[in-house]
Simulated assay, not measured.
Amino acid sequence: MNEATGPILYTIDGAIAVITLNRPEKRNALDDELVAGLNAALRRADADEAVRAVIITGAGKDFCAGADLRQLERIAERSILENLRDAETLMELFLNIRRVRIPVIAAVRGRALAGGCGLATACDIVLAAESARFGYPEVKIGFVPAMVMAILRRNVSEKRAFELIARGEELSAAEAERIGLINRVFPDESFASEVERYASTFADRSRSAVVLTKRLLYQMDGMSFEAALRSGADTNAIARMTEDCRQGIARFLSRTQR
């Protein structure tokens, strides 16, 4: 199934939902319509119990080049409250990625820059083609990558995060993987098939276990050690009561008792 909703393509491939940013002529730059469409597509995928993972990718040569030029032009014309509302729209997108119960995977070809880099690294997993490029160049135009800083700070070390946002230089996919900004790098020529193969592994995993795992991992942000352990104990008890866990234990015991 393949549906176009403005600048967003929504495809279901088995148990995987694929959301494609569909503004290739604008390098998939973020504007109000694209962000709204992406939010709607994420909510749709989250509501579909048959979906086990979501892939976000970009049409054309690039993943996402950040804010649309028209959006940038309007910044100086808007009041502080109008700019705040605009910023909160993007904030809601980053929050939605965390709220989606299943894994959200960024599949990055070409450039992921500024807000586009933030979008990629806001995802639970980032897969990149070897020629992909990442960066936060906002400082070069006197801007601050303010919201994506909350994401970046949770992905790499403090010193590396400061270097990335204060210098605004681009990184290769290999370097991004080395510092922990992304998960995997695949060859350009086999990237699509490698992403499909990677995402398909979630179709074979317990959906309830993955959902509980994602929720717990992000709940632990800012918790004390004891509070994190308590939250883990609560999730442990919930997982034991799921049908997936009961069936999994039964299968394991039947194999060991043969």
Rank of each mutant, 00 (worst) to 15 (best):
A106L: 05
A36Y: 02
S224T: 15
D46G: 07
F162M: 13
M220C: 08
E175R: 11
E163S: 08
L72R: 08
I80S: 13
R23Y: 04
L30H: 04
R70F: 13
I55G: 11
D13H: 09
E33I: 12
I165C: 09
A239E: 01
N2I: 12
V139W: 01
L69Y: 12
G14F: 02
E130Y: 07
E196Q: 11
I141Q: 13
I125N: 02
A4C: 06
A36D: 15
G118P: 06
C123K: 03
G110Q: 00
E25R: 04
L171Y: 02
R246Q: 15
S206L: 04
A122P: 00
L9N: 06
L152R: 07
A209G: 09
R258D: 09
E169Q: 02
G110N: 09
Y10S: 06
E88W: 12
T20C: 00
R240N: 13
F94T: 05
G14T: 11
R258I: 05
S79T: 15
V156D: 01
I80H: 11
V195I: 05
E82Q: 14
A192Y: 02
V35M: 03
I55F: 07
D221I: 08
Q219V: 07
G248A: 05
L229G: 02
L212V: 03
V148F: 09
D188T: 07
Y218C: 01
F186M: 03
I80D: 13
G142L: 03
T201M: 12
Q247W: 00
I19L: 01
Y10P: 01
A50S: 15
T11R: 06
T256D: 10
E194C: 13
G37K: 04
I8R: 00
D204G: 14
A199N: 01
V104F: 11
V195Y: 02
F202Y: 11
R207N: 08
I75T: 10
Y218Q: 08
V18G: 00
T213K: 06
E196V: 07
I165W: 13
A132F: 04
R258T: 14
E73G: 09
E82W: 12
I12L: 07
M241L: 14
A233L: 14
Q247A: 15
S208R: 13
G6R: 05
A106K: 05
V108F: 04
G14Q: 03
A50R: 15
E194S: 12
L72E: 12
Q71L: 09
L217N: 10
D32C: 10
A36S: 06
N236V: 10
R178K: 05
V139I: 15
Q247R: 15
D13W: 00
R184M: 09
S208G: 05
V185E: 01
R70G: 11
F162N: 10
R43G: 13
R255N: 03
A50V: 12
D32V: 11
I102L: 06
E158Q: 10
A87C: 08
I125V: 14
A112L: 02
A129M: 02
E88P: 09
D86P: 07
L113P: 10
A173C: 00
T213E: 10
R70L: 13
V210Y: 08
E88N: 14
L216S: 03
R215W: 04
T213Q: 11
